[in-house]
Every structure is written in C-alpha cells, then in structure tokens.
Simulated scan of single mutants.
Amino acid sequence: MTKIIMSPSKYIQGEGELSKIKQHVSNLGDSFLIIADKFIMSITKNIVEDSFNGSNLALTFEKFNGECSRQEINRLIDVCSSNNCNVVVGIGGGKTLDTAKAVAYYKKLPVVIVPTIASTDAPCSALSVIYTEEGVFSEYLILPKNPDLVLVDTSIIAKAPARLLVAGMGDALATYFEARACAEANATNMAGAQSTKSALALAKLCYETLLEDGYKAKLAVEYNIPTKALENIIEANTYLSGIGFESGGLAAAHSIHNGFTVLKECHHLYHGEKVAFGTIVQLVLENRPIEEIEEVIEFCISVGLPITLEDMGIKEINHDDIMKVAKASCAEGETIHNMPFKVTPETVYSAILTADAIGKQFKL
C-alpha cells in the first residue's frame, strides 16, 4: 500500500514577510518574473523593489489580466522567455497564483506563491484550475510538484475583506471531515495514494484551530489588525487545509459544493461558503452524532457561514432544483464516491433537506 503526503518545499508566514522576499527567494535564481493584477501590483510592487534594492538580481513585473486561461498562461510564458526569467513569483488571489504555477510548470522553473488573501487552501497545492477567456471552467492542470515556496505576509491579509477570510474558514472546515471519510473508506488522496496518519492529524488540527480562533480572527480582520488568532487561522486556511485536502483526500462536502453551482441563486457565494453548507450535509449523510453537527453549525453561525438553504440564497425550496443539485453532486468522477458507503442522488437530496431543517432550528 503506497502512502503519500504532499506539501510545498517551504512555507513562511509572518507579519511583514513580503519585505524580506529577497532573502527568502535569492537561492532559487537570479531573474524573477513577478505576476500580479493591477490592484495587487499597486500595493506590493514598491515593497518587492525595496527588498531587492542594491542586489544584482533582475525583476520583471507583469500585470495579470484577470483570468487563468490558456491564452494568459501562454502570454506570460512568452514574457518569461523574452526576459530570460528563471523564477516565477505569483502575488495575489487564486487565479493569479494558479497562473503563476502553470507558467512555472511549462517553463520548468521554480515557483514562489504569495497569497494576499486567505480565502482558499489553493496556495500550497499542486494544481491549477484553467478557465476559458470568458471565465467558464475548462480543465484541471495537475502539477508534478507543489510550489517551491509559499510566502504569507499576514499584515497584507489582515487588510483584506473579512468575508474572504471567513470563506477560507468554510473551505478549511471540510478538511478534517472529508479526510476522515476517505480514511474510513481507504479511498485515495489527490496524489492517487493512501493518506498518512500525519495528514489526518494535520486535518484534525485544522478543525480544532477553526473552533478555537475562527471568531477571534474574524474580529481582527474587521478591524484590520494582525493578531495571534488571525495568524493561526491564516495557517489553518492556507497550510493545514492545503496539506489536509491534498494528502487526506476530498469526499462529499466538495462534491455538494459543485452540485450547488448548478443553481443561479448560489452564484453570489464564494467557494468556501458553499463548502461550509456542504460539510453540514456530509455530516447528515454520514448520520454523525447530533452533537458534532451542532458544533459545526454553531461555528458557522459565529463567523457568518451559511447553515440553511435560505442562507445559500434559496428563498423558496424547489424540490426539482434540489434534486438537480443532488444529481450533480453524484456525477461520475465526483469525490463524493470516496465516502465509505454507497451514495445516491436520493440520499444526498434527503441529506440536503435534513441539514436545512436542522439549521432552521438555530434560527428560531
């Protein structure tokens, strides 16, 4: 039985760490392509330039055009080649980072990932999600290795909107429960192998950290101040959840998220907001103890994650629509089939409505 745990080569986190980027990356190469969108470039370019000031290392700054598409990846590959860059640095949100990872992969270069929000666990992963120029999902690009360095400046993330951090907590919330289900089913993780005890332990630590520091971290971000609680939640959202989902595996919660994308009423939600409700549905599907389900719901309430279909934007329940969600959740190839029992659209349909009914009890 093969077991694999996946992780970036190095993970660095702290207040003001972007100002030290030169000392963190100078061993990787001497000519850096730095990719960021217009807004992120405006708030980070001077910090990066000051860090490299006085060195003989070359910097090429290139604005990201907003979509992780084949066209944009190819454009940036050309920029990289024409400037003889030998390291790719992505600074920003998920699409910027995925694009940087893809460019580095095709150029066979090291990649440095600098997330400016903690809304997903994507920064540490060996995966890029490719879209069309119009923003429609196209394909997953599975990468042979995780980033060479993930650099997290918590003073920048503390200034991002609180809702983004909370969405990251929603994504991280599923990590332990999906990893636990995969372990019980002997299902494979994202590397196509069995998970390790250390991966499951990190996934559990992720959940415990959310319960302990999630609410406090939300308050810190609302006041734009870095605190120990915020540091812990950034680590949980970014590193613990990233290692947990790749090395532990995905199960029902993320499939149910995918199912809800078929409803236009849910299109305003962030990824992690849908995943949070999907986590409650998974626990119902598993018939977990009500105490565990209530603990998760109370956490969601404390930070502002959805616990009912109404919270998801579904004001009136259309049972045909809920069945569409259930069927999409159970599509061939979905990770819901990693659950330790047979799952059908009918059982998912029932679990969604039951989760909604339980959530409504907390609204009374």
Score class of each variant (00 low, 15 high):
K197Y: 09
S26L: 04
L127T: 10
K101R: 15
S82A: 05
T175G: 05
Q361D: 10
H24I: 11
A172W: 00
N74K: 15
G92W: 04
K20W: 11
N27T: 14
L205T: 11
E291Y: 12
I322P: 04
T116D: 13
A276W: 00
I256P: 02
V284N: 07
L57T: 01
G94N: 02
S329W: 06
L205E: 07
L210A: 05
G248N: 05
G135P: 09
T60K: 13
I243A: 08
E134W: 02
V221C: 15
E265T: 11
T188C: 14
I113L: 11
L202C: 11
S302T: 00
E231D: 15
H267E: 10
Q282R: 00
A160K: 08
V348N: 03
I130K: 09
Y207N: 11
A357G: 09
M169R: 08
D148E: 12
H267P: 01
N232Q: 12
S69L: 10
G90D: 04
A252W: 04
T96K: 05
D213A: 13
C80A: 10
I5S: 07
G170S: 07
S51V: 05
T261R: 15
N318S: 15
A217Q: 01
N318P: 02
G29V: 01
S7V: 00
I234R: 08
F245L: 12
F245Q: 04
E291C: 02
N56L: 08
K204G: 00
F39W: 07
N318E: 07
A185W: 08
C182V: 14
F299A: 10
